[in-house]
Amino acid sequence: MERREVSFRIYRYNPQVDRHPFYDNFKVAVEKGITILRVLNHIKEHLEPRLTFRAFCQAGICGSCAVRVNGISRLACTTQVWDVLTGSGDDPILVEPLNNLEVIRDLLVDVDPLMEKLKQNSSWVAPAIPEQQMGCKEHIVSETELEVIDSATDCILCGSCYSECSMMGVNRRYISPPVLLKAFRMNNDTRDTIGAERLQQVTADHGLWDCTHCYRCVEHCTKKIAIMEGIHRLREEALERRMTKSEGARHAQAFFDDIHDSGRLKEVTLPLRTKGVAGSLGMIPLAMKMGLKGRTPPLFMKKIPDIKHVRELYRKLEIRAVVKRHAVRQTERLQ
């Protein structure tokens, strides 16, 4: 069995005793096939009993153990050490808590904000069946209807996408990718009855329209869910339902126009066109914050490794967008 000594550099912070977070280094002899979680358990058991992190199922299904490994959010229990070795394999592996959530201690973060957002955005099916008739008979749901939402029901609320989301990075009040995914899952469930109401909630400020299309959530979803397809579908639904009055919808309109006209997104002028000059001034602090974090729009695009896939998606979208745009304009003209 292949075996080697690996260094781990682990984020530590106990608010009770530490003035500032710091990093602890551990050297562990690791066999091939060992996961990051097994290493954390080993450290806790033999080297530092105070090391604090969450883990439960150890099987990639409960969503407890998400951390950042070498800067990327993933499940500790399904991440093989061998897969995250860098350099000649001698660089320390960096293990840190998720981003965009308060650290409670070491690798453990407060996930209450995520739960709260689920609650605020009606992340449940509200069925048509009255209470008294519950359980009397099944809804008939076709395999194709189920297929639409099937992969969205894989979400384990691990928070990895929450941590990776670039919009979350600048605005913690942003609705967040898993909550949008849930909204998509519910709105496309044939048994649900409150689609319009839910869409009102998710399109409020800091909502659906604030997504920057950076695809980081898709790239890092631990369950490989195509979250953006859900987000796009929600946007289409918002336009179909003529929720076009908001700033976000106008933004989307301008976005579609860009893709149509040049195949490129002119992020720089986008605020001007959706908010007007006065409104755009208000965005300067945000833009600066994004710039400081190295997250100015052009960077987003470069970070996507599988650009071919993205382009293809965009192409499909473009076609749909054009069709939609005409439809929306038609209705606007009629009004």
């Binding site: 449940w124 359980g135 008979k137 749901v141 189920l146 099937d150 029901t153 649900d192």
Partner: peptide, 18 residues
């Protein structure tokens, strides 16, 4: 059936039943 009514995504037969 109650769980199904409340939104559990049960796999389906071709006729749409659980």
């Amino acid at each position: 059936r109650e769980l199904e009514n409340l939104g559990a995504p049960f796999s389906r037969f071709a006729d749409g039943t659980i």
